[in-house]
Design a protein around this nucleic acid. Sequence first.
DNA 1: TATATACGGAACTGGAGAGTTTCGGATACA
DNA 2: TGTATCCGAAACTCTCCAGTTCCGTATATA
Lengths: 206, 206
Amino acid sequence: MTLADSAPKLGRKRDLSRDGEILLAALDVLAETGYDGMTIDMVAARAKAGKATVYRRWASKGELVIDAVACMKNANLDVDALPDTGTLRGDLIAMIKPHAIEDSERKLQVMAGLMSMLQKTPELVDAAHAAIIEPRARINRILMNRAKERGEIPADADTETLSLVGPAMAAYRTLMLRKPVDRDYLISVIDGVVLPALGLPRPPQR
Amino acid sequence: MTLADSAPKLGRKRDLSRDGEILLAALDVLAETGYDGMTIDMVAARAKAGKATVYRRWASKGELVIDAVACMKNANLDVDALPDTGTLRGDLIAMIKPHAIEDSERKLQVMAGLMSMLQKTPELVDAAHAAIIEPRARINRILMNRAKERGEIPADADTETLSLVGPAMAAYRTLMLRKPVDRDYLISVIDGVVLPALGLPRPPQR
DNA sequence: TATATACGGAACTGGAGAGTTTCGGATACA
DNA sequence: TGTATCCGAAACTCTCCAGTTCCGTATATA
């Protein structure tokens, strides 16, 4: 037996892909029923697994949820794949794709499901921030900083705050107002709030 | 016995002020622990009441919470008490008072505590909207429409959306980012987002 | 003072769910 | 084929809490 092998000695190897299926199931249940409404049986059933299998891999419901939230982080675009249309408006609107809207809504539902738990579990705040909040804001920040470099918007624009306007309005509309966040709404936020705040003229009409 | 008295026949009159104390206690617990973490014993203890007393007045935990949320609606300013400084910026900044910040934060904590319940209880969406969301947006809308009437901002400005920018940013910062919403932050949102989006120049510095 | 009512407190019931244990079956490896 | 390991299912324990019931007491009315 050579080294460089870190675990399996005898019998069947532990199936790591099973972990991912259970985490995905946990996210589904989390988004649908929230942390308190979620039971381990629900998660196990959705993953076609037994309750014991879940507890063989995570010590408690809380740790499962933390892992599930953390694993959302991976499903992200890399910087090179960002649109580059030449204008900030073009870039921001190119980011509005059906898939992105669905993904965002799901993340917000997960976040809503975690809300009650955030107060008691500080490490969940970090996990949720890294997996849900930051990736979304990061894209806007990059696009705005590009616009800054090419002189399209003032160099002293507060892109740190402005990159959060879209996400904040979408979260507010979804979670508080319970109204749909569709393409038209996102465009109206871009054209009616974000771009004017950056000193760019409103496009002709809408 | 004259008329104009609507109930008591014998014995002790039912103490209506007790209702209010219990509802206030329920809001405290709701803000601190959320709907699922809240127990009727907690509410009763905080109101120095017995559990049975609570159930004598509300049929279930859910109805108690709905009533508690609805009763937040009353603690609101009337339109005549709004500031009128002559400029939109002056009015918006005059609204930032320590009491208003605390009140707003408490409402957001209550809202966070309700989050998990909103999905299953549509009538709570309405109650929360009327008591928490709308009063805050309403003030901004009124101030902005005044500015519109006096010609300070364009007549076609989308005040419906812009009146939600402040509340949305505050909610996002409190509930998602878990950072403090203080006077400086609110001013930076007003000066960096809301006013520029309305075509008003940014004030000299900050 | 007498009485009816509402009170706070405490004991109780029933159900739901977290976490554990057991077991028969499937599967990878020798 | 034999064996060790992991699996899904189900039964189990234990705690917590919604909601109920009961009781001794306080108080407003008469």
